[in-house]
């Protein structure tokens, strides 16, 4: 099983994400934002955290319009898996692969700490190793993580069981405490918290490890 991790100018969690994928048994190739094709046979694309293009204009906006993102969209349209963390979540909303948008944190401050999340659904490759309602502690590090969507979109996300994670103690003003959401086909996950930073015992916290744990097995049968 093969993963591609996209690197934009300003990405800074790309290698962490690659390590998490590798530890889960995936072959990983890094792809540059100017590349016009994904490596052959890619099963999952990771969009890492960071500050792509300096967060100019809007977080993720310029990255979402880079050449590789056309390929990421085509990959998702073909039913491919995509995982966006932090800036990657912002990129996924800007591409339209996930609904809603991420605004400046309600308290205006950049927040960097570990927060308790609740697993809202186990119906996805990324959350199937958790228990529904389970609390996990995952680091966040963002300035623009305040998720917003209109009432209709929220009702759809909830009705279709597409909220993957919520904050137990809302740190950033996100509507309905939303920390991560899934696409309609449940194969695209965007989340602000960083499971790749809590994915092995050396991190001091491995609560995020199960996001990656069953990828190889499940992707092989997908």
């Amino acid at each position: 099983m093969k993963a591609a991790v996209v690197v934009f100018p300003g990405s800074n969690c790309d290698r962490d994400l690659a390590v998490a994928f590798r530890n889960a048994g995936l072959d990983v190739e890094m792809v540059w934002h100017k590349d016009t094709a994904l490596p052959a046979g890619v099963d999952i694309v990771g969009i890492p955290g960071g500050f792509s293009f300096g967060d100019y204009l809007r977080c993720g906006a310029i990255a979402a319009n880079s050449p590789i993102c056309n390929e990421v969209k085509a990959h998702a349209d073909r039913g491919g898996f995509v995982f966006g963390v932090c800036n990657g979540f912002q990129v996924l909303t800007e591409t339209g692969l996930l609904p809603g948008a991420l605004l400046r944190n309600a308290g205006l401050k950049y927040i960097c700490r570990t927060v308790p999340l609740q697993v809202e659904t186990t119906d996805s490759v990324f959350t199937q190793a958790y228990e529904k309602g389970e609390q996990i502690n995952i680091p966040i590090a963002h300035h623009d993580g305040n998720y917003i969507a209109d009432d209709e979109t929220l009702a759809m996300l909830k009705g279709e069981d597409r909220v993957a994670f919520t904050y137990r103690e809302n740190p950033n003003g996100s509507v309905a405490d939303i920390a991560g959401i899934l696409s309609a086909n449940r194969r695209v996950l965007g989340m602000m918290p960083h499971p790749e930073r809590a994915a092995e015992s050396e991190h001091g916290n491995a609560d995020g490890q199960r996001v990656f744990a069953q990828l190889t097995e499940t992707l092989a049968s997908a």
């Binding site: 204009l57 906006a61 909303t93 809603g100 948008a101």
Partner: peptide
């Protein structure tokens, strides 16, 4: 529509 504004927000 494509870049300068995010018409969601």
């Amino acid at each position: 529509e494509k870049l300068l504004a995010n018409t969601v927000i």
